[in-house]
Design a protein around this nucleic acid. Structure first.
Ligand SMILES: [Mn+2]
Ligand SMILES: [Mn+2]
Ligand SMILES: [Mn+2]
Ligand SMILES: [Mn+2]
Lengths: 238, 238
DNA sequence: ATATTTTTTTAAGTATGCTTAATTTCTAAA
DNA sequence: TTTAGAAATTAAGCATACTTAAAAAAATAT
């Protein structure tokens, strides 16, 4: 009997593949289109050659469909796997913050690791412990056990906010550790309600007020903060 | 400038090395002597050649001292690393059981993975959450952050117990998932108090009674159960 | 239609951590 | 003290997941 050839269709769930699937999924979610190979390489900080290799493997295992020069897309199977990793990631994030009081700024990094090392039974326990939550601490929806996603909430970014209106901070991009540290330090955390006092054309910065704090927010930061407008009692939407 | 040679003295903390260090430490703890290479290979289910390779690496990094044909021993540095892994393992076990209600029988396996993927900050939070416990759910001491070990408690195994005496179940070997499932099923869990009713010379099995349950325990199982004798009020030890 | 640029693949090589098979080194028993 | 048998090492190879450099393929611009 011959030695088995390069690789048969086994598990195919490694840390690397899980991270590839997640990136492909997220790009599609955010931009509504397939990710192309060069972009994926940049996002994952690997060479184009690495993408080429990996794309072959993922295709062979039926996790992506890849037409070269056209982009990479998840199959249903690949999407289910991606959702599962994202589920583990977001449940961990919430758990680390809510239960273990880890700082908001450190939680993403640790979840990025734990997401690959968590059995189904363990993640179910965490889910149960948290009361089957729908959103993670950054406001992102947590995929359910069955693979469905809670209704996405479409927030506007602070960069789209209007002077004089009131908002609640609902979501923050979680990949910039320093940003999250900063927001925590100044007390501008999730669910904080604030008013936009001023919008400076000069540098596109915003001046906002929450509690008794007046804060100037640069354009760059304003693009990472997502808000829900607060309609005051008595006002009518329309 | 030349490409860096085979390997410089970098981190040297990988899943593999952590598991090697743990095994070396535990053997020494249990048997009071260095582990020899062949034994280590068996324990880790790898070939002797793999041990040879890895022993070279661990030595080069100052984590073990290895005299061939004489055995492998941890250096102080290696021992601190081992204790750290064991700390993470045991804290996770306790956390998974106490906080997340995972079944006793599944906890070891999951901890075996998580121990390699837990930042210092996270494990400190878990430690704090649990109130800086001294013992894990199998009765084993949990190394402290500073590397010290709570005073080991020396229990006797059921195989050494005496007919007619009362005991409390204090510790169970955690590597046999099936054993732990079984004990849980029959209700013979940690801290159960029981009386040894009978000791059969025929097959070295024990008959014990706890609550209203009478249980026959085979020799093999009896060797994995560790007990503390209960001195009844009024009795005197001596 | 042809040329340029971008995208993609191939080829060769690295590191980790294993394997089996062959060989060497050492211990211990006769 | 020779020697059989452990114990340990070396050699060659595999799998994963990367790298750089070179080549090929397709898209785009002229
Ligand atoms: Mn995150
Ligand atoms: Mn990750
Ligand atoms: Mn354990
Ligand atoms: Mn382990």
């Amino acid at each position: 009997m011959l030695k088995s050839p390069n690789f048969e269709l086994k598990n195919m769930s490694t840390i690397s593949t899980e991270n590839y699937l997640k990136k492909i999924f997220n790009h599609n979610k955010v931009f509504g289109e397939k990710i192309n190979a060069v972009k994926l390489a940049q996002e994952l900080s690997v060479s184009n050659a690495a993408i080429s290799d990996m794309a072959k493997k993922l295709s062979k295992h039926g996790l992506i469909s890849y037409e070269k020069y056209k982009g990479i897309e998840l199959t249903d199977k690949g999407e289910q796997m991606a959702l599962n990793v994202i589920r583990r990631h977001r449940l961990w994030e919430l758990f680390l913050i809510k239960v273990l009081n880890m700082p908001w700024s450190e939680v993403h990094e640790q979840a990025e690791v734990l997401e690959h090392h968590t059995s189904e039974k363990l993640i179910d326990r965490i889910d149960e412990f948290l009361g089957y939550p729908d959103f993670d601490p950054h406001g992102h929806p947590i995929p359910r056990k069955n693979g469905s996603l809670p209704d996405a909430q479409y927030y506007i970014s602070l960069a789209e906010a209007v002077e004089g209106s009131s908002y609640e901070l609902m979501q923050v991009d979680d990949h910039e550790k320093k940003l999250i540290s900063y927001l925590t330090k100044v007390g501008f955390v999730l669910n904080t309600r604030f008013v936009v006092i001023d919008k400076l054309d000069f540098d596109k910065s915003y001046t906002i007020k929450f509690n008794d704090t007046v804060l100037s927010v640069s354009q760059k930061i304003s693009e990472s903060l997502y808000l829900k407008e607060i309609i005051e009692a008595g006002e009518k939407n329309g």
